[in-house]
């Protein structure tokens, strides 16, 4: 007998489907809700973030990707009207616990933004700033080592090693973004959050960042928000699809882009949304 396979999950069903949980996660999020005043921007999101994975978050504008991403290093704390409920742990520690030092948390969970935002300082100082304030170095030569190492990992060293004293803002857009990645790496993070890191970059600079992401994964865990689905498909191992504040589907990226399980995911990735 032919077994009739179930169809795609209906658009009315908003319970997350797919591989949202993993074994031995780096980070766990359970029933996370976010409100901006009365506006309920993120609804009951539960997901794990694996070690050394790149997790891509996709979805239409305004679906809550950035809002959710900012929960992961408590960046939403800086927005007065924003309230976060639920539980998020990093290596089994509740990051919303009272005793958490937010400055250290943001070093452990670094962030790279859409628009590169180097400090108006030298290239060297941009990278050296974090390790210095976090007391990660004992000597100038230690610090030199960290700066060089971070720039090497960010794929920028060869381009800037002869002009470390020049302002970071003088670099090209793609170089500035890699400088911001070097800055995040310099404080020894476990997780790096990236919110549309390539949307201000040209295709070549974008390709460099994508290559860099693939290399960084060996050492770090990366969560990237992108509106570019091909980018999500290229760089990530799992992809999470958000829709109007709901986490609709999480799947292994190759699977999600060939056989999504939810109608909303399929409509979005095939360009039939709206």
């Amino acid at each position: 007998m032919v077994e009739k396979k179930s169809q795609l999950i209906s658009v009315d069903d908003r319970k997350t489907v797919g591989q949202q949980f993993v074994e031995n996660p780096r980070m766990t999020c359970r029933d996370v809700n976010v409100y901006y005043g009365d506006k309920h921007a993120v609804h009951d999101v539960s997901i794990d973030i694996a070690r050394n994975e790149v997790l891509a978050m996709i979805g239409p504008s305004g679906c809550g990707k950035s809002t959710f991403l900012r929960c992961l290093n408590r960046m939403n704390d800086t927005i007065d009207i924003c309230r976060v409920t639920g539980e998020i742990t990093l290596d089994d520690n509740d990051i919303y616990a009272k005793n958490i030092d937010i400055v250290s948390l943001r070093a452990l969970v670094g962030m790279v933004f859409q628009k590169p935002n180097p400090f108006p300082k030298s290239i060297y100082d941009n990278v050296a700033y974090g390790p210095t304030i976090h007391g990660l170095t004992e000597s100038k030569s230690d610090l030199d080592g960290i700066v060089e190492n971070s720039l090497v990992k960010a794929g920028l060293w060869d381009e800037v090693k002869d002009r470390l004293d020049q302002p970071g803002t003088g670099l090209s857009g793609g170089q500035q973004q890699r400088l911001c990645i070097a800055r995040a790496i310099a404080v020894e993070p476990e997780l790096i959050l990236m919110d549309e890191p390539c949307s201000a970059l040209d295709p070549i600079a974008t390709a460099k960042i994508e290559e860099l992401i693939a290399e960084l994964r060996e050492q770090y865990t990366i969560v990237i928000v992108t509106h570019n689905m091909q980018q999500a498909a290229r760089v990530s191992q799992r992809t999470a699809y958000f829709h109007l504040g709901d986490l609709i589907e999480v799947g292994y990226t190759d699977r999600l882009f060939t056989t999504p399980r939810h109608q909303l995911t399929e409509d979005y990735i095939t360009g039939r949304f709206g």
Partner: peptide, 9 residues
């Protein structure tokens, strides 16, 4: 067009 999902299949 780099189709995905059912379009790709």
């Amino acid at each position: 067009y780099q189709p995905v999902a059912k379009d790709l299949r």
